[in-house]
Write a protein that binds this DNA or RNA. Structure first.
Length: 506
RNA sequence: GGCCCGUUCGUCUAGGGGUUAGGACGCAGGAUUUUCAUUCCUGUAACACGGGUUCGAUUCCCGUACGGGCUACCA
């Protein structure tokens, strides 16, 4: 089999949303599946939209997700440089080649002039029908062109789209997609500042970096026609890369594609990691900061537009790579479903060993001023992991393991505790527990059972008192397990404190 | 407007000329559980519409509708 080389080519214009991560993921999976190479290429040809820090953000996001480039800026590789701004001369050379071979031409129309034309005719296109009426090397005399070039007048190089050609794209996702060249405009290849446009840079780099598969978002499907024309102009059409255009990710509600603002509007993350822009409006919380396991995010994203065709849903990155095929990618847009994302996270948390979970949870607990012993923390996460969805829930739902509750379930206490008699009933239980020589879940349970029977009570009269007394809430792990973890002294302290509190409400 | 792409339960999707149209999330109910959660069971709910082709179409073809993308010296 041929040596697969794929690339993820983001533009460093800000935070990279989840759709970009999915594109990177699919590229990565295809490469990983068959020992190919996954390349990161930074497409920073638009100087005006460049955002410092965006490249670092992209790389950190990919690393967090486990989608690590094998070639790219900072990752080595024999086909660099991998930042397009460092490849300016290369594009210049090929742009010139386009002009020399008659597939391109100089155009001297200023942006202002073109704006004016567009204003006069909303449907204006710079194409085979209009180019002869504009200011370019096809209409100006050779001397005039030379004069302008020598005078360093600003110009662009445009692709001279040939007439009456049909362009048939064999898309791996969509099968055949066809275009007519007469519908296509003469796109700018080299801009006035000497930088290439996406179209030129993309084709040249994919060629030079020996890219075999172009997997990108559906928004690129229309311009693929131009890219094919470029391959054709350079004589590379017979071995151009294979294309696969991915369906878009849609808003969770309403219509349209997912946008940055949706995350803010709905209070959900649409970015892998947080981005701190210059303004609050340009700052976003990521899946990481929301409390997601990156494996869950990856698993979730993999299923937005792809499906293995089996009933298995939980996939490690390795399993994903093994099962992944471009043919299984869907054609229609996928709506972002945050409930499903949370479900994946819950599945991953439950399946994570306690020691690993403790590592992730420790900083969350420490942020609230507690330094639990490692054994204690591991037992804690073990008891709580079936009761949380996101990492911060360990604290939100389990803070009582580390500090006294301040509010408690008064409704339950009103039902189960009587100021006039309950204390006298339960005081002996505290003493019987105190007398236990080994304080384990089993021994505590035995003690409580004996007490309950002797007092002529039911479990339902005793357990709620212990549970709320210990934790303040009716929700949580098994009471006896918690008592064993808390220990004899702490459990007693809590119960006695709670009984005082209970007397005041009942 | 023009060009291009798409359309199976609310959502993610499997499937495919003859099926009780399958799974997952969500939601509802039940079992287990001292609680909550987990787990298990049950239920809920879909082939956009109209024409063809065919013995038969949700599946193939053509339209329509709807949705989306592109239409920059942005990617």
């Amino acid at each position: 089999m041929e040596n697969i080389r794929v690339r993820f080519a983001p533009s460093p214009t800000g935070a990279l949303h989840i759709g970009g991560i999915r594109t990177a993921l699919y590229n990565y999976l295809l490469a990983k599946k068959i020992g190919g190479t996954f390349i990161l290429r930074i497409e920073d040809t638009d100087q005006t939209r460049y955002v410092p820090g965006a490249e670092a953000y992209i790389i950190e996001s990919l690393r967090w997700a486990g989608i690590v480039p094998m070639e790219g800026p900072g990752f080595g590789g024999a086909y660099g440089p991998y930042r397009q701004s460092d490849r300016k001369e290369i594009y210049l050379e090929y742009a010139q080649q386009l002009v020399d071979s008659g597939h391109g031409y100089y155009a001297f129309d200023t942006p202002e002039e073109l704006d004016a034309v567009r204003k006069a005719d909303e449907n204006f296109k710079y194409d085979s029908k209009t180019r002869l009426k504009l200011k370019n090397s096809l209409t100006l005399s050779a001397e005039e062109v030379k004069r302008r070039l020598n005078a360093e007048e600003p110009y662009v190089i445009r692709l001279k789209v040939p007439e009456d050609q049909s362009i048939l794209i064999q898309d791996l996702v969509r099968d055949e997609v066809s275009f007519q060249s007469n519908e296509l405009d003469d796109k700018v290849m080299l801009k006035g500042d000497g930088m290439p446009t996406y179209h030129l840079a993309n084709v040249i780099d994919d060629r030079l970096m020996k890219i075999t598969h172009v997997i990108r978002g559906e928004e690129w499907l229309p311009s693929t026609a131009h890219h094919v024309l470029l391959y054709r102009a350079f004589g590379w059409e017979t071995d151009m890369p294979r294309f696969a255009h991915l369906p878009l990710i849609l808003k969770p509600d309403g219509k349209g594609k997912l946008s940055k603002r949706d995350g803010f509007r709905l209070g959900i993350p649409v970015f892998p990691i947080s981005w701190n822009g210059e303004t609050p409006e340009d700052s976003f919380i990521g899946f990481r900061e929301f409390g997601f396991d990156p494996r869950a995010m990856v698993n979730f994203m993999a299923f937005m537009g792809w499906n293995p065709g089996t009933e298995q849903e939980i996939f490690s990155m390795d399993e994903l790579a093994e099962a992944f095929t471009v043919e299984k990618i869907g054609k229609s847009g996928a709506r972002f479903d945050f409930d499903k994302a949370k479900w994946f996270n819950q599945q991953y948390i439950m399946a994570t060993p306690d020691a690993d979970l403790a590592k992730t949870v420790r900083p969350i607990i420490e942020a609230h001023g507690h330094q639990p012993a490692e054994d204690f923390l591991r037992s804690f996460v073990g008891m709580m992991k079936e009761r949380v969805i996101l990492f911060p829930d360990f604290w939100t739902n389990g803070a009582y393991f580390f500090e006294d509750f301040t509010v408690f379930d008064e409704a339950t206490i009103r039902k189960k505790w009587k100021a006039e008699g309950s204390r006298a009933i339960f005081a002996p239980l505290v003493e019987q527990l105190e007398a236990l020589s080994d304080y384990t879940a089993t021994s505590v349970q035995g003690c409580v059972e004996a007490f309950t029977a002797n007092a002529g009570l039911k479990f339902g009269d005793v357990l709620p008192i212990l549970r709320v007394g210990l934790t303040g809430t009716m929700k949580g792990p098994a009471v006896f397990d918690m008592m064993a973890l808390l220990g004899k002294a702490e459990s007693r302290r809590r119960l006695e404190r709670a009984f005082d509190l209970f007397d005041k409400v009942s």
